[in-house]
Design a binder for these strands. Structure first.
Lengths: 216, 216
DNA sequence: GGCGAACCGTACCGTACGGTACTGTGAATG
DNA sequence: CATTCACAGTACCGTACGGTACGGTTCGCC
Protein backbone atom coordinates (compact mmCIF):
# COMPACT_ATOMS: atom_id res chain seq x y z
CA UNK A 1 0.00 0.00 0.00
CA UNK A 2 1.31 3.41 -0.96
CA UNK A 3 1.63 6.26 1.42
CA UNK A 4 1.89 8.99 -1.18
CA UNK A 5 -0.92 11.36 -0.44
CA UNK A 6 -1.59 12.78 -3.88
CA UNK A 7 0.43 11.62 -6.90
CA UNK A 8 0.63 14.99 -8.62
CA UNK A 9 -1.49 17.90 -7.60
CA UNK A 10 0.10 20.78 -9.50
CA UNK A 11 -1.68 23.38 -7.39
CA UNK A 12 -2.40 25.97 -9.99
CA UNK A 13 -2.08 29.68 -9.54
CA UNK A 14 -5.14 31.81 -8.73
CA UNK A 15 -5.23 33.04 -12.28
CA UNK A 16 -5.23 29.50 -13.58
CA UNK A 17 -7.95 28.58 -11.12
CA UNK A 18 -10.10 31.33 -12.55
CA UNK A 19 -9.50 29.93 -16.00
CA UNK A 20 -10.47 26.46 -14.83
CA UNK A 21 -13.62 27.91 -13.30
CA UNK A 22 -14.54 29.51 -16.58
CA UNK A 23 -13.85 26.27 -18.39
CA UNK A 24 -16.08 24.34 -16.01
CA UNK A 25 -18.81 26.90 -16.45
CA UNK A 26 -18.51 26.58 -20.19
CA UNK A 27 -18.64 22.80 -19.99
CA UNK A 28 -21.71 22.83 -17.76
CA UNK A 29 -23.57 25.23 -20.01
CA UNK A 30 -22.77 23.77 -23.38
CA UNK A 31 -21.37 20.30 -22.97
CA UNK A 32 -18.12 19.03 -24.37
CA UNK A 33 -18.81 20.49 -27.77
CA UNK A 34 -18.73 23.98 -26.28
CA UNK A 35 -15.41 23.35 -24.58
CA UNK A 36 -13.12 24.57 -27.34
CA UNK A 37 -9.76 26.12 -26.68
CA UNK A 38 -10.85 29.34 -28.33
CA UNK A 39 -14.04 29.33 -26.30
CA UNK A 40 -12.23 28.85 -23.02
CA UNK A 41 -9.75 31.58 -23.90
CA UNK A 42 -12.57 33.97 -24.75
CA UNK A 43 -14.62 33.12 -21.66
CA UNK A 44 -11.62 33.43 -19.36
CA UNK A 45 -10.10 36.48 -21.03
CA UNK A 46 -6.87 34.74 -21.62
CA UNK A 47 -4.95 33.76 -24.71
CA UNK A 48 -4.87 30.36 -26.27
CA UNK A 49 -1.11 30.45 -26.02
CA UNK A 50 -1.34 30.69 -22.25
CA UNK A 51 -3.73 27.77 -22.17
CA UNK A 52 -1.23 25.61 -23.98
CA UNK A 53 1.61 26.86 -21.84
CA UNK A 54 -0.22 26.06 -18.61
CA UNK A 55 -1.97 22.83 -19.47
CA UNK A 56 0.01 21.39 -22.34
CA UNK A 57 -2.84 20.49 -24.61
CA UNK A 58 -6.57 19.99 -24.54
CA UNK A 59 -6.39 16.72 -22.64
CA UNK A 60 -4.22 18.39 -20.04
CA UNK A 61 -6.88 21.02 -19.64
CA UNK A 62 -9.54 18.37 -19.11
CA UNK A 63 -7.43 16.59 -16.51
CA UNK A 64 -6.78 19.87 -14.77
CA UNK A 65 -10.49 20.62 -14.69
CA UNK A 66 -11.27 17.31 -13.03
CA UNK A 67 -8.47 17.67 -10.52
CA UNK A 68 -9.50 21.22 -9.78
CA UNK A 69 -13.14 20.39 -9.21
CA UNK A 70 -12.27 17.39 -7.07
CA UNK A 71 -10.05 19.57 -4.92
CA UNK A 72 -13.01 21.85 -4.25
CA UNK A 73 -15.32 19.10 -3.05
CA UNK A 74 -13.73 18.24 0.23
CA UNK A 75 -15.31 15.27 1.91
CA UNK A 76 -15.45 15.62 5.66
CA UNK A 77 -15.68 12.68 7.99
CA UNK A 78 -16.97 13.51 11.42
CA UNK A 79 -17.80 10.27 13.11
CA UNK A 80 -15.94 10.86 16.35
CA UNK A 81 -18.89 10.64 18.67
CA UNK A 82 -20.17 7.38 20.07
CA UNK A 83 -22.97 6.20 17.89
CA UNK A 84 -26.49 5.48 18.97
CA UNK A 85 -29.04 3.85 16.72
CA UNK A 86 -30.72 7.16 16.05
CA UNK A 87 -27.39 8.88 15.37
CA UNK A 88 -26.34 6.19 12.95
CA UNK A 89 -29.58 6.52 11.07
CA UNK A 90 -29.15 10.26 11.02
CA UNK A 91 -25.63 9.99 9.66
CA UNK A 92 -26.71 7.53 7.01
CA UNK A 93 -29.52 9.83 5.95
CA UNK A 94 -27.10 12.72 5.75
CA UNK A 95 -24.69 10.66 3.73
CA UNK A 96 -27.41 9.54 1.35
CA UNK A 97 -28.65 13.06 0.75
CA UNK A 98 -25.11 14.37 0.30
CA UNK A 99 -24.33 11.62 -2.15
CA UNK A 100 -27.42 12.32 -4.22
CA UNK A 101 -26.72 16.02 -4.08
CA UNK A 102 -23.16 15.56 -5.27
CA UNK A 103 -24.02 13.15 -8.05
CA UNK A 104 -26.84 15.41 -9.22
CA UNK A 105 -24.76 18.56 -9.25
CA UNK A 106 -24.46 20.07 -12.68
CA UNK A 107 -20.67 20.23 -12.56
CA UNK A 108 -20.44 16.61 -11.51
CA UNK A 109 -22.81 15.55 -14.25
CA UNK A 110 -20.91 17.54 -16.85
CA UNK A 111 -17.56 16.07 -15.83
CA UNK A 112 -18.91 12.54 -15.78
CA UNK A 113 -20.36 13.05 -19.25
CA UNK A 114 -17.02 14.33 -20.40
CA UNK A 115 -15.07 11.42 -18.96
CA UNK A 116 -17.54 8.88 -20.30
CA UNK A 117 -17.36 10.44 -23.73
CA UNK A 118 -13.60 10.07 -23.74
CA UNK A 119 -13.55 6.63 -22.15
CA UNK A 120 -13.19 4.76 -25.42
CA UNK A 121 -10.42 7.01 -26.65
CA UNK A 122 -7.93 7.81 -23.93
CA UNK A 123 -7.83 4.48 -22.17
CA UNK A 124 -10.12 5.76 -19.41
CA UNK A 125 -7.54 8.13 -17.99
CA UNK A 126 -10.16 10.72 -17.08
CA UNK A 127 -12.50 8.01 -15.88
CA UNK A 128 -9.91 6.72 -13.44
CA UNK A 129 -9.33 10.23 -12.17
CA UNK A 130 -13.04 10.74 -11.55
CA UNK A 131 -13.28 7.38 -9.80
CA UNK A 132 -10.22 8.00 -7.69
CA UNK A 133 -10.96 11.55 -6.67
CA UNK A 134 -14.72 11.28 -6.62
CA UNK A 135 -16.27 8.07 -5.48
CA UNK A 136 -13.20 6.82 -3.66
CA UNK A 137 -13.15 9.89 -1.44
CA UNK A 138 -16.81 9.80 -0.54
CA UNK A 139 -16.48 6.06 -0.17
CA UNK A 140 -13.93 6.51 2.57
CA UNK A 141 -16.40 8.65 4.46
CA UNK A 142 -19.03 5.94 4.15
CA UNK A 143 -16.53 3.26 5.11
CA UNK A 144 -15.62 5.07 8.30
CA UNK A 145 -19.27 5.50 9.12
CA UNK A 146 -20.02 1.84 8.55
CA UNK A 147 -17.12 0.69 10.68
CA UNK A 148 -18.15 3.04 13.44
CA UNK A 149 -21.59 1.48 13.26
CA UNK A 150 -20.11 -1.97 13.52
CA UNK A 151 -17.89 -0.98 16.41
CA UNK A 152 -20.95 0.31 18.22
CA UNK A 153 -22.69 -3.00 17.64
CA UNK A 154 -25.32 -1.41 15.46
CA UNK A 155 -24.28 -2.91 12.15
CA UNK A 156 -23.33 -6.44 11.22
CA UNK A 157 -21.42 -7.16 8.06
CA UNK A 158 -18.52 -9.22 6.89
CA UNK A 159 -16.97 -7.31 4.05
CA UNK A 160 -17.04 -3.56 4.35
CA UNK A 161 -16.83 -2.94 0.61
CA UNK A 162 -19.78 -5.22 -0.01
CA UNK A 163 -21.83 -3.36 2.54
CA UNK A 164 -20.90 -0.03 1.01
CA UNK A 165 -21.70 -1.31 -2.44
CA UNK A 166 -25.14 -2.32 -1.23
CA UNK A 167 -25.71 1.00 0.44
CA UNK A 168 -24.65 2.84 -2.68
CA UNK A 169 -26.95 0.79 -4.88
CA UNK A 170 -29.90 1.29 -2.57
CA UNK A 171 -29.38 5.03 -2.55
CA UNK A 172 -28.58 5.67 -6.17
CA UNK A 173 -29.92 2.75 -8.20
CA UNK A 174 -30.05 3.96 -11.80
CA UNK A 175 -30.75 7.56 -10.87
CA UNK A 176 -27.23 8.66 -11.73
CA UNK A 177 -27.35 7.16 -15.17
CA UNK A 178 -30.76 8.66 -15.86
CA UNK A 179 -29.50 12.09 -14.91
CA UNK A 180 -26.45 11.58 -17.12
CA UNK A 181 -28.76 10.68 -19.98
CA UNK A 182 -30.47 14.02 -19.58
CA UNK A 183 -33.67 13.16 -17.78
CA UNK A 184 -35.24 16.18 -16.18
CA UNK A 185 -33.37 16.71 -12.95
CA UNK A 186 -35.84 18.91 -11.10
CA UNK A 187 -38.33 16.07 -11.00
CA UNK A 188 -35.71 13.91 -9.32
CA UNK A 189 -34.31 16.39 -6.85
CA UNK A 190 -37.69 16.67 -5.16
CA UNK A 191 -37.55 12.94 -4.56
CA UNK A 192 -34.12 12.89 -2.93
CA UNK A 193 -35.50 12.91 0.60
CA UNK A 194 -37.90 10.04 0.11
CA UNK A 195 -35.23 8.14 -1.77
CA UNK A 196 -32.66 8.56 0.99
CA UNK A 197 -35.16 7.46 3.60
CA UNK A 198 -36.15 4.38 1.68
CA UNK A 199 -32.53 3.43 1.08
CA UNK A 200 -31.41 3.89 4.67
CA UNK A 201 -34.40 2.00 5.96
CA UNK A 202 -33.67 -0.91 3.64
CA UNK A 203 -29.97 -0.85 4.46
CA UNK A 204 -30.67 -1.03 8.18
CA UNK A 205 -33.04 -3.90 7.64
CA UNK A 206 -30.27 -5.71 5.79
CA UNK A 207 -27.24 -4.90 7.91
CA UNK A 208 -28.63 -3.57 11.18
CA UNK A 209 -28.29 -5.59 14.35
CA UNK A 210 -31.30 -6.04 16.63
CA UNK A 211 -30.06 -3.09 18.67
CA UNK A 212 -30.28 -0.67 15.78
CA UNK A 213 -33.90 -1.26 14.82
CA UNK A 214 -36.69 -0.20 17.12
CA UNK A 215 -38.09 -3.68 17.50
CA UNK A 216 -41.79 -4.09 18.31
CA UNK B 1 -52.19 6.42 -21.53
CA UNK B 2 -51.34 5.74 -25.12
CA UNK B 3 -52.01 2.52 -26.85
CA UNK B 4 -49.67 3.07 -29.78
CA UNK B 5 -47.25 0.20 -29.70
CA UNK B 6 -44.21 1.82 -31.32
CA UNK B 7 -44.33 5.48 -32.34
CA UNK B 8 -42.23 5.10 -35.48
CA UNK B 9 -40.22 2.07 -36.26
CA UNK B 10 -39.18 2.65 -39.87
CA UNK B 11 -38.17 -1.00 -40.34
CA UNK B 12 -35.14 -0.55 -42.52
CA UNK B 13 -34.24 -2.65 -45.51
CA UNK B 14 -31.71 -5.48 -45.20
CA UNK B 15 -29.10 -3.35 -46.90
CA UNK B 16 -29.71 -0.57 -44.44
CA UNK B 17 -29.51 -3.02 -41.55
CA UNK B 18 -26.10 -4.07 -42.77
CA UNK B 19 -25.06 -0.45 -42.81
CA UNK B 20 -26.34 0.02 -39.26
CA UNK B 21 -24.42 -3.06 -38.20
CA UNK B 22 -21.24 -1.64 -39.64
CA UNK B 23 -21.90 1.66 -37.94
CA UNK B 24 -22.40 -0.06 -34.59
CA UNK B 25 -19.23 -2.02 -35.07
CA UNK B 26 -17.40 1.19 -35.83
CA UNK B 27 -18.83 2.88 -32.78
CA UNK B 28 -17.91 -0.01 -30.51
CA UNK B 29 -14.37 -0.14 -31.78
CA UNK B 30 -13.52 3.52 -31.89
CA UNK B 31 -16.08 5.48 -29.90
CA UNK B 32 -18.08 8.40 -31.13
CA UNK B 33 -15.05 10.06 -32.64
CA UNK B 34 -14.67 7.18 -35.07
CA UNK B 35 -18.29 7.38 -36.14
CA UNK B 36 -17.89 9.76 -39.06
CA UNK B 37 -20.10 9.70 -42.10
CA UNK B 38 -17.14 8.99 -44.34
CA UNK B 39 -16.02 6.24 -41.99
CA UNK B 40 -19.42 4.57 -41.94
CA UNK B 41 -19.65 4.80 -45.71
CA UNK B 42 -16.24 3.25 -46.11
CA UNK B 43 -16.86 0.49 -43.57
CA UNK B 44 -20.24 -0.37 -45.05
CA UNK B 45 -19.21 -0.02 -48.69
CA UNK B 46 -21.89 2.50 -49.39
CA UNK B 47 -21.85 6.12 -50.43
CA UNK B 48 -22.28 9.08 -48.15
CA UNK B 49 -25.11 10.23 -50.35
CA UNK B 50 -27.03 7.04 -49.59
CA UNK B 51 -26.47 7.57 -45.88
CA UNK B 52 -28.03 10.97 -46.08
CA UNK B 53 -30.87 9.73 -48.24
CA UNK B 54 -31.69 6.92 -45.79
CA UNK B 55 -31.15 8.60 -42.45
CA UNK B 56 -31.45 12.30 -43.15
CA UNK B 57 -28.41 13.47 -41.26
CA UNK B 58 -25.95 12.28 -38.68
CA UNK B 59 -28.43 12.52 -35.82
CA UNK B 60 -30.87 10.45 -37.82
CA UNK B 61 -28.19 7.83 -38.21
CA UNK B 62 -27.58 7.77 -34.47
CA UNK B 63 -31.28 7.42 -33.73
CA UNK B 64 -31.54 4.64 -36.27
CA UNK B 65 -28.63 2.84 -34.66
CA UNK B 66 -30.28 2.93 -31.25
CA UNK B 67 -33.63 1.80 -32.62
CA UNK B 68 -31.96 -0.93 -34.61
CA UNK B 69 -29.97 -2.28 -31.71
CA UNK B 70 -32.98 -2.15 -29.40
CA UNK B 71 -35.02 -4.11 -31.92
CA UNK B 72 -32.41 -6.85 -31.80
CA UNK B 73 -32.47 -7.26 -28.03
CA UNK B 74 -35.86 -8.82 -27.55
CA UNK B 75 -36.83 -9.19 -23.93
CA UNK B 76 -38.76 -12.33 -23.24
CA UNK B 77 -41.09 -12.74 -20.29
CA UNK B 78 -41.84 -16.31 -19.41
CA UNK B 79 -43.49 -16.31 -16.04
CA UNK B 80 -46.45 -18.49 -16.88
CA UNK B 81 -45.77 -21.26 -14.43
CA UNK B 82 -46.89 -21.14 -10.83
CA UNK B 83 -44.05 -19.88 -8.75
CA UNK B 84 -42.43 -21.68 -5.89
CA UNK B 85 -39.88 -20.04 -3.65
CA UNK B 86 -37.05 -21.81 -5.40
CA UNK B 87 -38.41 -20.93 -8.84
CA UNK B 88 -38.76 -17.28 -7.90
CA UNK B 89 -35.20 -17.18 -6.70
CA UNK B 90 -34.09 -18.88 -9.87
CA UNK B 91 -35.94 -16.37 -12.03
CA UNK B 92 -34.52 -13.47 -10.07
CA UNK B 93 -31.03 -14.83 -10.47
CA UNK B 94 -31.57 -15.26 -14.18
CA UNK B 95 -32.90 -11.73 -14.43
CA UNK B 96 -29.95 -10.34 -12.51
CA UNK B 97 -27.41 -12.10 -14.66
CA UNK B 98 -29.19 -11.10 -17.86
CA UNK B 99 -29.35 -7.52 -16.71
CA UNK B 100 -25.66 -7.39 -15.92
CA UNK B 101 -24.86 -9.12 -19.18
CA UNK B 102 -26.90 -6.63 -21.19
CA UNK B 103 -25.55 -3.57 -19.41
CA UNK B 104 -22.01 -4.84 -19.79
CA UNK B 105 -22.29 -5.64 -23.46
CA UNK B 106 -19.95 -3.61 -25.59
CA UNK B 107 -22.68 -2.38 -27.91
CA UNK B 108 -24.82 -1.29 -24.99
CA UNK B 109 -21.90 0.50 -23.39
CA UNK B 110 -21.01 2.24 -26.64
CA UNK B 111 -24.56 3.42 -27.23
CA UNK B 112 -24.92 4.64 -23.68
CA UNK B 113 -21.67 6.54 -24.00
CA UNK B 114 -22.92 8.05 -27.22
CA UNK B 115 -26.27 9.11 -25.76
CA UNK B 116 -24.64 10.52 -22.64
CA UNK B 117 -22.20 12.50 -24.73
CA UNK B 118 -25.04 14.06 -26.66
CA UNK B 119 -27.28 14.59 -23.64
CA UNK B 120 -26.33 18.21 -23.14
CA UNK B 121 -26.75 19.06 -26.80
CA UNK B 122 -29.84 17.48 -28.27
CA UNK B 123 -32.20 17.82 -25.34
CA UNK B 124 -31.67 14.18 -24.39
CA UNK B 125 -33.48 12.81 -27.41
CA UNK B 126 -31.16 9.83 -27.69
CA UNK B 127 -31.19 9.40 -23.94
CA UNK B 128 -34.96 9.12 -23.90
CA UNK B 129 -34.81 6.57 -26.68
CA UNK B 130 -32.33 4.45 -24.77
CA UNK B 131 -34.40 4.70 -21.61
CA UNK B 132 -37.61 3.88 -23.41
CA UNK B 133 -36.35 0.99 -25.49
CA UNK B 134 -33.79 -0.28 -23.06
CA UNK B 135 -34.54 -0.12 -19.40
CA UNK B 136 -38.29 0.22 -19.83
CA UNK B 137 -38.45 -3.04 -21.73
CA UNK B 138 -36.39 -5.04 -19.33
CA UNK B 139 -38.23 -3.32 -16.51
CA UNK B 140 -41.51 -4.74 -17.74
CA UNK B 141 -40.05 -8.21 -17.54
CA UNK B 142 -38.97 -7.58 -13.97
CA UNK B 143 -42.32 -6.04 -13.13
CA UNK B 144 -44.17 -9.09 -14.33
CA UNK B 145 -41.87 -11.32 -12.35
CA UNK B 146 -42.36 -9.29 -9.20
CA UNK B 147 -46.12 -9.30 -9.52
CA UNK B 148 -46.11 -13.00 -10.13
CA UNK B 149 -44.12 -13.38 -6.94
CA UNK B 150 -46.61 -11.27 -5.06
CA UNK B 151 -49.56 -13.20 -6.47
CA UNK B 152 -47.91 -16.40 -5.29
CA UNK B 153 -47.57 -14.92 -1.82
CA UNK B 154 -43.79 -15.01 -2.01
CA UNK B 155 -43.16 -11.28 -2.20
CA UNK B 156 -44.61 -8.43 -0.21
CA UNK B 157 -44.38 -4.88 -1.49
CA UNK B 158 -46.57 -1.84 -1.84
CA UNK B 159 -45.31 -0.03 -4.89
CA UNK B 160 -44.05 -2.20 -7.69
CA UNK B 161 -41.77 0.49 -9.13
CA UNK B 162 -40.16 1.03 -5.75
CA UNK B 163 -39.47 -2.65 -5.44
CA UNK B 164 -38.01 -2.80 -8.92
CA UNK B 165 -35.88 0.23 -8.24
CA UNK B 166 -34.50 -1.48 -5.16
CA UNK B 167 -33.83 -4.69 -7.06
CA UNK B 168 -32.07 -2.78 -9.81
CA UNK B 169 -29.89 -0.88 -7.35
CA UNK B 170 -28.93 -4.04 -5.49
CA UNK B 171 -27.93 -5.75 -8.71
CA UNK B 172 -26.15 -2.94 -10.49
CA UNK B 173 -25.07 -0.40 -7.89
CA UNK B 174 -22.44 1.75 -9.56
CA UNK B 175 -21.14 -1.04 -11.74
CA UNK B 176 -22.77 0.35 -14.86
CA UNK B 177 -21.22 3.75 -14.40
CA UNK B 178 -17.80 2.27 -13.73
CA UNK B 179 -17.99 0.29 -16.92
CA UNK B 180 -19.08 3.38 -18.81
CA UNK B 181 -16.08 5.19 -17.40
CA UNK B 182 -13.86 2.56 -18.91
CA UNK B 183 -12.91 0.41 -15.95
CA UNK B 184 -11.61 -2.94 -17.02
CA UNK B 185 -14.63 -5.04 -17.83
CA UNK B 186 -13.12 -8.49 -17.68
CA UNK B 187 -12.42 -8.08 -14.00
CA UNK B 188 -16.11 -7.31 -13.45
CA UNK B 189 -17.63 -9.97 -15.65
CA UNK B 190 -16.09 -12.68 -13.52
CA UNK B 191 -17.95 -11.20 -10.56
CA UNK B 192 -21.38 -11.18 -12.15
CA UNK B 193 -22.42 -14.45 -10.55
CA UNK B 194 -21.48 -13.52 -7.03
CA UNK B 195 -23.01 -10.12 -7.53
CA UNK B 196 -26.33 -11.50 -8.74
CA UNK B 197 -26.46 -13.90 -5.84
CA UNK B 198 -25.78 -11.22 -3.30
CA UNK B 199 -28.39 -8.93 -4.81
CA UNK B 200 -31.13 -11.55 -5.01
CA UNK B 201 -30.43 -12.70 -1.49
CA UNK B 202 -30.68 -9.17 -0.18
CA UNK B 203 -33.79 -8.47 -2.20
CA UNK B 204 -35.55 -11.52 -0.83
CA UNK B 205 -34.59 -10.54 2.70
CA UNK B 206 -36.17 -7.15 2.06
CA UNK B 207 -39.28 -8.09 0.13
CA UNK B 208 -39.71 -11.81 0.65
CA UNK B 209 -42.55 -13.16 2.74
CA UNK B 210 -41.88 -15.82 5.34
CA UNK B 211 -42.91 -18.42 2.79
CA UNK B 212 -40.13 -17.48 0.38
CA UNK B 213 -37.21 -17.88 2.73
CA UNK B 214 -36.24 -21.23 4.09
CA UNK B 215 -36.73 -20.21 7.68
CA UNK B 216 -34.85 -22.07 10.43
C1' DG C 1 14.75 54.59 -17.74
C1' DG C 2 15.89 50.11 -19.53
C1' DC C 3 14.86 45.26 -19.63
C1' DG C 4 12.78 40.88 -19.55
C1' DA C 5 9.04 37.92 -18.28
C1' DA C 6 4.31 36.99 -18.50
C1' DC C 7 0.49 37.43 -21.03
C1' DC C 8 -3.51 39.10 -24.06
C1' DG C 9 -5.51 39.38 -28.57
C1' DT C 10 -5.44 37.88 -33.02
C1' DA C 11 -3.99 36.13 -37.16
C1' DC C 12 -2.65 32.01 -39.18
C1' DC C 13 -2.11 26.94 -40.64
C1' DG C 14 -3.29 22.22 -41.35
C1' DT C 15 -6.68 19.09 -40.90
C1' DA C 16 -10.97 16.84 -40.47
C1' DC C 17 -15.67 16.72 -40.46
C1' DG C 18 -20.79 17.28 -42.12
C1' DG C 19 -23.15 17.77 -46.01
C1' DT C 20 -23.80 18.24 -51.31
C1' DA C 21 -23.13 17.41 -56.16
C1' DC C 22 -21.53 14.89 -59.90
C1' DT C 23 -20.12 10.86 -62.59
C1' DG C 24 -20.09 6.05 -63.51
C1' DT C 25 -22.27 1.46 -63.35
C1' DG C 26 -25.06 -2.47 -63.04
C1' DA C 27 -29.56 -4.32 -62.83
C1' DA C 28 -34.34 -4.14 -63.74
C1' DT C 29 -38.10 -2.77 -67.02
C1' DG C 30 -40.45 -1.82 -71.41
C1' DC D 1 -31.70 -1.67 -77.15
C1' DA D 2 -33.17 2.46 -74.65
C1' DT D 3 -34.64 4.21 -70.25
C1' DT D 4 -34.84 4.45 -65.54
C1' DC D 5 -33.57 3.63 -60.96
C1' DA D 6 -30.63 2.81 -57.04
C1' DC D 7 -26.42 3.10 -55.69
C1' DA D 8 -20.98 3.42 -55.17
C1' DG D 9 -17.21 6.24 -55.43
C1' DT D 10 -15.23 10.57 -55.31
C1' DA D 11 -14.44 15.19 -55.64
C1' DC D 12 -15.82 19.29 -53.58
C1' DC D 13 -17.28 23.14 -50.22
C1' DG D 14 -17.82 25.62 -46.00
C1' DT D 15 -16.78 25.54 -41.48
C1' DA D 16 -14.73 24.73 -37.16
C1' DC D 17 -11.38 23.00 -34.38
C1' DG D 18 -6.49 22.11 -32.22
C1' DG D 19 -2.30 24.02 -32.12
C1' DT D 20 1.36 27.72 -33.27
C1' DA D 21 3.39 32.23 -34.16
C1' DC D 22 3.65 37.05 -33.64
C1' DG D 23 2.88 41.94 -32.29
C1' DG D 24 1.54 44.75 -28.45
C1' DT D 25 0.90 45.69 -23.42
C1' DT D 26 1.52 45.50 -18.58
C1' DC D 27 4.27 44.76 -14.55
C1' DG D 28 8.07 43.83 -11.64
C1' DC D 29 13.03 44.37 -11.08
C1' DC D 30 17.80 46.12 -11.57
Amino acid sequence: MQLAAHPHQPDYSPRQNDVLDSALRLLVDGGEKALTTAGVARAANCSKESLYKWFGDRDGLLSAMIGFQASKVRTFDDTAETLTAAALQEHLMLFARDLLEVLGGDVSLALNRLAIGQASRDGSKLGSMLQERGRRQIGKRAGALLEAGRDAGLLVFGDRDDAYDTLYGLIVSDLHLRMLLGEDRDRMVKDFGRRAQKAVSAFLRLYGSEKSSAGP
